[in-house]
Structures are given as structure tokens and as C-alpha cells.
Write a protein that binds this DNA or RNA. Structure first.
Length: 821
RNA sequence: GCGGGUGUGGCGGAAUUGGCAGACGCGCUAGACUUAGGAUCUAGUGACUAGUUCGUGGGGGUUCAAGUCCCUCCACCCGCACCA
């Protein structure tokens, strides 16, 4: 017979819900703890990744709460997005209906897992009471000059028929549907995240509680390069070509210039010349390539001379101008000075087109042989072929040459970032409408706060083709200009859903506020998020955008902090048979089924026990059964010991009793350390298992002479320390033990340091580093006593026979190593 | 190509400070209880040539002592990918 998890879980879930058990308010007398898991997209059903994510968060929240913190642990829905709209197109269900139903279903599943959320703060980004404030924040950013509209070549997914941010293009394909992304010229809205590039980079250092991996990924994504912009006069023209280089020291080695084929000078310099036709052909060819074909390092470098030259400002040499596929328009100035001797890419290109190679940096101990170069020399060295700079270390020359060109008025030190501005326009319905109208007289006008929320219209057609569905709504499109009252047209783009999730953690602080975005006082109490938990797939996108939003809102005076997440835990994936659970692979295990068969407590316990949180977790049906068996084992033990206990002071006499007290204290210490910041839930649970095993041993050994006060302490502490992991189970046992208050309101147990000191310790005896025997020694024994004991040990003597002692190493309370020869 | 990570029994994983490798769980073996056992309890379970043996991806090194530190090689995973 197993314990009746169905009845127990239903009973306590109802009670927690009816009593708002985990709802919190600001309480200045208590220290706060904000525990947050990345909110889900309501796709239909929870998957095991959710179960894992939320189980981890729940243990932390419950543990912190029992440790005396005022814990904010909210949940909500990232509920705008494409799948809802695709469902509308495919099945004729309105996205709002589809989403609402999914939220209901998944919300039920979350409650079924027994997660300790403050449901009073539940939010959904697709609801007007939330997106009103997303729109309002947009207008605040607009006022600060951090939002702008620009006509630019953008990443276009032909299948989703929408624009994608750079971050949403994965291997040249759409992050969502994998279709090949193409470039398209469109007028689009951007957030000026590049204005914050330096701070987003610098402040990574503040984030001590973040995994290095994530910080490094963000650092690389921001991609700061320090260098110089240099102006090269074009021969036979008044114009000059600007290039960015990180190696101004190699200026004398520039033997050709390369423009991106889209560079405005390309056409300007070739129009009406013999080069016009071939250049156009080359441009056309590149345009038809996908992003990945265009930019992959595997693609062979290709280009052509366009008939003109630049003049090297330092030595007056004429340098031919090329266009080539490997120079990108949207980084730096879209043009480079090519130094084949010291840059791999330029070297490859020069080899292919037989261009001049002039080395200007020599390795310290050898001379470069120009004629036999097989690769560019990219390391540090000594300047050569560089006029007045010869002999200098090249690092030093960087500074000197920048000084020089600065003095000539043709260049200066510059910093470039790989990070691009954040394109937020989406030609889609199911998102936040951009709160802007285009007025024939006033131009672009943001809606004032009293006109927000700008609601999504309902009279739209979902064709899945062409422009934003909002253009099909006659009631939406036309409106008086908020400034002059003349008839104007609305923006029809909606915002990228990453905008919605960039500030939701702030809204949780005051989720029901309909007067302002949130009460700053409340945000001051709760922010920052003490622990954020989610998948590593959000290492760049979501986490970078959320940091950006928080910084801007901090600068505007809205957010009390300029970094949102103090500590970040990135949990691994849930795998089955070695690969990620997916419908197409047919290896999905549904949380519902597991809960039905074993209960939520078992499901939680398994995902926490099977693997440390940041590693991938291999699903195992046998492992789930093991977790279930363990809970039953605890249940029986508590049930059997329940009647054998009595309150009162614990007197410990027998060896068995001492051992139980020792293990009990050790376990409390271990779990506290494992759960608190280290998040080793797997070892925390294994130590509870050891404690339970010890409980059985004690029961067996003591038979009829059970120490009733000790049993009471053991049973109660056992139930308490299991509480964060198996909340319903422990709640029921706690009630059976005669308590009226929830076990989750009980203070986390402390441990007695003194109980961890044993009278005797086991010492390992080694001869030449190999274990030969183990002996029990009084903990207080001196080094000399231990050594004497070791040297008198029969087994040790056996192994020393006929040899002489070289050295004896004694580590108190641990081991003795006798080195013999 | 660049950057980061991982590698321990039949399996998932422990070993937090250089100090007994394999905690805990799964699986397996045996016993007890039982009409029965896919329940439960108890015991055992790294390998073999059974040793003063070998063993943490391979090879080398430092140390009285190495999964842990150093060098080197291999395999797999993740991120970025012509960023001048």
C-alpha cells in the first residue's frame, strides 16, 4: 500500500488556494527575498522543462520563507506571440480565446504541482492592464530619444512573414520556424540599445551571482572593439573613404581597400564606368544569397576591383579599391583597409587576387619572409616598413599612429560594438500595438497616457499573408491626431514579445496597480530579484533586453535598481534517451501522466534528485519510481514512529541514540548548505535518504527501548526538512503529528555544532599512500598518540616488514601515512 | 576558426579545503515475511589473473598522498561565427 497522494495533494492544494497561503505584502520588519522563475509562454501544456524550472524555484522560495524571509514568488504569462496567431490562421480560433484557454489549463497544471505562488500577482502580458504599461514605457523611451524609426535592410522571415531581430536569426534561419531569413528594406521601429552598450558590458562585472558562461556570452554579443577610424582620400575626387580598424599600427601595410558591395560609394564610384555592369552583377548575386551563405566563414572570399584608388595618408601610396563579400555594411563604416600581411581574411583575399603583401610588423626573434608567407602574422612584434615608426613595438605604435592621424585631422580613436539596435517592429496581430499615430501635419505622435491602452482591435482578418493584420481593421486604422485633432493613421506594427518580458519582474512588485506602472516604494522594497531561474537559451536575448530596460527605467527614475537580477541559475534541459524531449522525436513524457501515477511530490522530488540543476537531466521512469518509493518509505517510518514519541528534553545515552543525533544534525547542516545558494538539491535529497536509513537502523537496533523524546525530534525535523521538496506530503504528515499550523510556516531547523563532534573518529592508516587499516581514535588524541598507534598496528607492521621508515605524515582526525623504503 | 564546458561502476550521479574513489538512488544477486510478490524488510554489489593487484577519457609530471594541481593529447557537448 502506498500513501494516498491523490487525496492528500488535492486537499492541500485546495487549502493553499482558499487561504491565499503564499500571498505576501511589503513588510519592512522582515528581510525580503524575491524568487523568480522565467514565466512561460502559454503554448498549451506544461512540459518537463517547466516542471523542472518551477520545482527548483519552489524549493528555493519555500526554503527561504521557512528561513525567515518575506518571500515574493510570483507567476504569470508571456502571452503574446506567434503560435496564438498561427492557431487563429489554421483553426479560426481567435488568439485571445486560444491564449486564455491555454492559460487556464497551464495554470491548473501549476497549481497541481503545488507551487507556492502568490496568485494575487498573476499577470498576462496580453491583457490590456499589462500592455497599457508596456505602451506607456514605450512612450517614455520615445521621449528619451531611445526609440526611432528607420528604413533599413532587415531580417525577414518569409514563412512567419515578419521582421526578426538579429538575435532571432539562428544560423541564417528563423529562430521559430527555421526558414531561411532574407534581407528586405523596410521602415521599422528600433530601441537604441547601442546607447547602453558600454554600460551593459561594464556592469557584467557587478553580476557576481551570474554564471561566467552567460556573462561571457553577453560580452561577446556586445562585442566591443577599440580601434580608430581613418579617412582615405579617393584619388581624383574630393571625397574620402572612412574605414574602421583595430590595427592602426598596420596602416603602412594597407595594400588595398575593400568596400561592402552595398556601400554607397560602390555605385557612386562605378556609375557610368566600364565597371558598372560587372559590379551590379556582383551585387545582385550576393543579394540572392541567404544570410548564412553570405556571411559564413566557410564561403570563399570573392570580390572585384572597381577601377578607383585611395591614397594612403601616411605614405601617399595609391591603393586599389575592391568590393568583396567578406566586408559587411552594418559593422564599422562598411569599408576596410586591407592589410594582408597581418590579417587572415585580407591575406586569403590577396592570395586569391594576387595582391601586394607588405609586412609592417616583424616577429621579435625572426624576420618575416614576404615571399614565402603562408599565413598572416597576427601576433605582436616590432614595426618595419613604417617610416618614423620603425623599431617601435607595435602596441606602442597603435597609440602613436592614432596621435599622428589625429594631428593630420584624418582620423581618431573609435570604439565599435557588434551589438546592433533592437528592432522591435513585427507585422503581426498578437502583440502590443505600437502607440503612435502618423499625422499629416504633426508627423509621428506618441499617444498620451490617457489614451492608453491602445487596444488591439477585434475586427481583423487573419490571413497570415502580407502586412500586419491591424491594417485590415477599419476601426483601428484611422483616428484623430492627439496633438492637432486632424485625421491621422495609426502605426500597424506590434512590438516584439521580448519587449513584454523585459519589465514583467518590476510589475510583479505591484501587479494590480491601475494608476501607474508600479508603485516605486513597493519596487524599492522588492527589487532586485534575488534569484532568477530559467533556461540558458535566454542567456543573450531576454537577459540582455531585461538588463537594458531596467537601466533605462532606472535612468528615468522608475526602477530603483539598474540591474534586475542579482543571482541567476540556468537550469539544464530535460532529456529522454539522450535528446531533448520533443513531439517530433516522440520522446515526450507528460507531466500530467506522472502526476496521475505518482503524484506531484514524486515528480518534483525526481527532477530535483536526478541531477544538479544546471546540468541536463536524463528522464528515467525507474528513477521516478525510486523517488516514489522513498516517499513511501518516509511515510511508513513516520507512521510507525508516530505513536512512540513524546515531547520533552532529549537525553542521549546509547551508541545508537548518539549516532541518530549525529546524523540528524549532520543532515540539517548539509541540507541547509546545499539548498542555500549552492542549489545542490540532488545531494540535499540524498542526505535526507541517509537520515531516513539511519532512522530505520535506529528503530531496528533499539527495538522496544525507543527514546521517545529523541524520536519526536527526529520525526518532526525529518518532516520539516522534506517540506520544500515534497510540500503536500510533509503538510499531511505534519498535520498527522498533531500540528495545526502549516509546516511551511515552521522555522527551518537549526543544527547543534556540538552534536557534530564525535568522541571518536576513524583514522585511516596508510603505508606508502595505500590504505592498510582503519582504527578508531579519541577525537582528542594528539599527533604523537596517533602516530604511536599506527606504528603499533599489526597490519601496518606487516606491510613495513624489512623496510625502514622514511617519513610519517599525520593528519589529525583523518589519516596517518607511513612512508617506507 | 574563436570562446566556454564536460569526460568517474551496468545506469543517474557523490567526493565542498590535495587526504579512505564510487555517498545516495536505479538496476542486479541472495535471504526473510508471504497464498502470492512487480509490496516490504535485511544483506551484498567497481574490475580481474583475487594481489602487498588494477581502477576517475589517453599519456606524462608535481606530491608522503591526485578524480581534484601542472603539461600534453583525444572524444563529445554548447555558444559565436568573415565584426575589420
Amino acid at each position: 500500500m502506498s500513501y494516498d497522494f491523490n487525496a492528500i495533494e488535492a486537499k492541500w492544494q485546495k487549502k493553499w488556494l482558499d487561504t491565499n497561503a503564499y500571498s505576501v505584502t511589503e513588510d519592512p520588519s522582515k528581510e525580503k527575498y524575491y524568487c523568480l522563475e522565467m514565466f512561460p509562454y502559454p503554448s498549451g501544456k506544461l512540459h518537463m522543462g517547466h516542471v523542472r524550472n518551477y520545482s527548483i524555484g519552489d524549493v528555493i522560495a519555500r526554503f527561504k520563507s521557512m528561513s525567515g524571509y518575506n518571500v515574493l514568488h510570483p507567476m504569470g504569462w508571456d502571452s503574446f506571440g506567434l503560435p496564438a496567431e498561427n492557431a487563429a490562421i489554421a483553426h479560426g480560433i481567435h488568439p485571445d480565446k486560444w491564449t486564455t484557454e491555454n492559460i487556464a489549463e497551464m495554470g491548473y497544471q501549476l497549481r497541481r504541482l503545488g507551487l507556492a505562488y502568490d496568485w494575487d500577482r498573476e499577470l498576462a502580458t496580453c491583457k490590456p492592464d499589462y500592455y497599457k504599461w508596456t505602451q506607456w514605457i514605450f512612450t517614455q523611451f520615445y521621449e528619451k530619444g531611445l526609440v526611432y524609426k528607420k528604413n533599413a535592410p532587415v531580417n525577414w522571415c518569409p514563412s512567419c512573414e515578419t521582421v526578426l531581430a538579429n538575435e532571432q536569426v539562428v544560423n541564417g534561419g528563423c529562430e521559430r520556424c527555421d526558414s531561411t531569413v532574407v534581407k528586405k528594406n523596410l521602415s521599422q521601429w528600433y530601441f537604441k540599445i547601442t546607447d547602453y552598450a558600454e554600460r551593459l558590458l561594464e556592469d557584467l562585472e557587478k553580476l557576481e551571482g551570474w554564471p561566467d558562461k552567460v556573462k561571457l556570452m553577453q560580452k561577446n554579443w556586445i562585442g566591443k572593439s577599440v580601434g580608430a577610424e581613418v579617412s582615405f582620400k579617393i584619388d581624383g575626387s574630393e571625397k574620402a573613404l572612412d574605414v574602421f580598424t583595430t590595427r592602426p599600427d598596420t596602416l603602412f601595410g594597407a595594400t588595398f581597400m575593400v568596400l561592402a558591395p552595398e556601400h554607397p560609394f560602390t555605385n557612386e564610384l562605378t556609375d557610368g564606368t566600364e565597371f558598372e555592369v560587372p559590379v551590379r552583377a556582383f551585387q545582385q548575386k550576393l543579394q540572392h544569397l541567404s544570410e548564412i551563405e553570405r556571411t559564413s566563414t566557410d564561403v570563399e572570399k570573392e570580390g572585384m576591383f572597381i577601377g578607383r584608388h585611395c591614397i594612403n595618408p601616411l605614405n601617399g601610396e595609391l591603393i586599389p579599391i575592391y568590393i568583396a563579400n567578406y566586408v559587411l555594411m552594418d559593422y564599422g563604416t562598411g569599408a576596410i583597409m586591407a592589410v594582408p600581411a597581418h590579417d587572415e581574411r585580407d591575406f586569403d583575399f590577396a592570395k586569391k587576387y594576387d595582391l601586394n603583401v607588405i609586412p609592417v610588423v616583424d616577429p621579435e626573434n625572426a624576420d618575416i619572409d614576404v615571399n614565402n608567407l603562408t599565413a598572416a602574422f597576427v601576433a605582436e612584434g616590432k614595426m618595419i616598413n613604417s617610416g618614423e615608426f620603425n623599431g617601435m613595438n607595435n602596441k606602442e605604435a597603435i597609440e602613436k599612429i592614432i596621435e599622428k592621424i589625429n594631428g593630420m585631422g584624418i582620423g581618431e580613436k573609435t570604439i565599435n560594438y557588434r551589438l546592433r539596435d533592437w528592432l522591435i517592429s513585427r507585422q503581426r496581430y498578437w502583440g502590443v500595438p505600437i502607440p503612435v499615430v502618423n499625422c499629416p501635419t504633426c508627423g509621428e505622435v506618441c499617444l498620451p497616457e490617457e489614451q492608453l491602452p491602445l487596444l488591439l482591435p477585434t475586427d481583423v482578418e487573419f490571413t497570415g499573408k502580407g502586412q500586419s493584420p491591424l491594417t485590415t481593421s477599419p476601426t483601428f486604422m484611422h483616428t484623430p491626431c492627439p496633438k492637432c485633432g486632424e485625421m491621422a493613421t495609426r502605426e500597424t506594427d506590434t512590438m516584439d514579445t521580448f519587449v513584454d518580458s523585459s519589465w514583467y519582474f518590476l510589475r510583479y512588485c505591484d501587479a494590480r496597480n491601475d494608476k501607474e506602472v508600479f508603485d516605486k516604494k513597493k519596487a524599492e522594497y522588492w527589487m532586485d530579484v534575488d534569484q532568477y531561474i530559467g533556461g540558458v537559451e535566454h542567456a543573450i536575448l531576454h537577459l540582455l533586453y531585461a538588463r537594458f530596460f531596467t537601466k533605462v527605467m532606472y535612468d528615468i527614475g522608475l526602477s530603483p535598481v539598474d540591474e534586475p537580477f542579482k543571482n541567476l541559475l540556468t537550469q539544464g534541459m530535460v532529456l529522454k534517451d539522450g535528446s531533448k524531449m520533443s513531439k517530433s522525436k516522440g520522446n515526450v513524457v507528460s507531466p500530467d501522466e506522472i502526476i496521475k501515477t505518482y503524484g506531484a511530490d514524486t515528480a518534483r522530488l525526481f527532477v530535483l534528485f536526478a541531477s544538479p540543476p544546471e546540468k541536463d537531466l536524463e528522464w528515467s521512469e525507474a528513477g521516478v519510481e525510486g523517488a516514489f518509493r522513498f516517499l513511501n518509505r518516509v511515510w511508513r517510518l513516520v507512521e510507525e514512529l508516530m505513536t512512540e514519541r513524546s515531547e520533552g528534553a532529549v537525553n542521549v545515552n546509547t551508541k545508537e541514540e548518539k549516532e541518530l543525533v549525529y546524523v540528524l544534525n549532520k543532515t540539517v547542516k548539509k541540507i541547509t548548505e546545499d539548498v542555500n545558494g549552492r542549489f545542490n538539491f540532488n545531494t540535499a535529497i540524498s542526505s535526507i535518504m541517509e537520515l531516513v536509513n539511519q532512522g530505520y537502523h535506529y528503530k531496528e537496533a533499539a527495538k522496544d527501548e525507543l527514546n521517545q523524546a529523541l524520536i519526536n525530534e527526529f520525526v518532526e525535523k525529518l518532516v520539516i526538512i522534506i517540506a520544500p521538496f515534497a510540500p503536500h506530503f510533509s503538510e499531511e504528515l505534519w498535520e498527522m503529528l498533531g500540528h495545526n499550523e502549516s509546516v511551511h510556516k515552521v522555522a527551518w531547523p537549526t543544527f547543534d555544532e556540538a552534536a557534530l563532534v564525535k568522541d571518536e573518529v576513524e583514522i585511516v592508516l596508510q603505508v606508502n599512500g595505500k590504505v592498510r587499516d582503519k582504527v578508531s581514535v579519541a577525537t582528542s588524541a594528539s599527533k604523537e598518540e596517533i602516530e604511536a598507534l599506527a606504528l603499533a598496528n599489526e597490519k601496518v607492521l606487516n606491510f613495513m616488514e624489512g623496510k625502514s621508515i622514511v617519513k610519517v605524515v599525520v593528519i589529525p582526525s583523518k589519516l596517518v601515512n607511513i612512508v617506507v623504503k
